[in-house]
Amino acid sequence: MGGSLNANHLLFLGHGALWTIGLSTIALIGGGLLGFLIALARVSPSRAIRLLSGGYVQLIQGTPLLVIMFLGYFGLSALGFSISALMAASASLTIYVGAYFGEIWRGCIQSVPKPQWEAAEGLGLSRTQRMIKVILPQAMRIATPPTVGFMVQIIKNTSLASVVGFVELARAGQIINNSLFEPFLIYAIIAVIYFALCFPISALSRRLERRMGNGRTKLMPA
C-alpha cells in the first residue's frame, strides 16, 4: 500500500469490518451461552454457586477488557500455550461479555415479580419447570432491549482485539494509516463504518424498549 486512499484500502477496511462482525458474533454466541449459565448460577438456590458466579462477575467487571486481552494472548503464551490472535480475542471477549450478560440477565430474571414465582410454585411446578415455562419467557422479554443495546458495546469492544494483532476494522485502519499518514481521514472512515454497524442495533434496541411498554409484552403488575 502507499500513496493516496484507493479502492484496495477500502476493500481492506471492508475485510476488517467483516472480521469485526465475525468477532462480535463469536462474542455474542460464546458470551451469550456463558452469560446464560452465569445468570442461572446467580439466582441458584445454592449459596456457594451464587458466591462463585458473583465473584466471577465482580472480577471480570473490575478488569479492563484490554487487560483481559493481554492476559489471554501474552499471558497464555508465557505459560507455554500457543494461541492465535483470533482465539485470544474470542476467548477474552467471551469471558468479558459472559460476565456482563450474566449480570444483565440476572437482573431480568429477578425482576419477574415474586408472585409469579410463587404462583408457579403453588401449582407444584419443579424449579426447572418454573424457570423454563414461567420465569424465563417473561425475563426474556424484559432482557431483549438491554441485550440488544449491549450488542453495540460488543461491536465497539472488538476494536480492542487490535492490541493482540488481530486485524479487525480498527487494526485495518491502523495498518492503512501507517502507510498513508492520513489519520483524520482513515479514522473518520472507520468511525462511519462503526456507526453504520451500531446505529441499526441502537435503533432496534430503542424500538424494542418502546414496544415493551405496550401490548402483550407488558408484565402483569405484582
Partner: peptide
C-alpha cells in the same frame, strides 16, 4: 392456592 393479585402468567 389463589392469591390477592391473581398471578396469572401474562405470556
Amino acid at each position: 392456592i389463589v392469591f390477592q393479585s391473581y398471578n396469572l402468567f401474562p405470556h
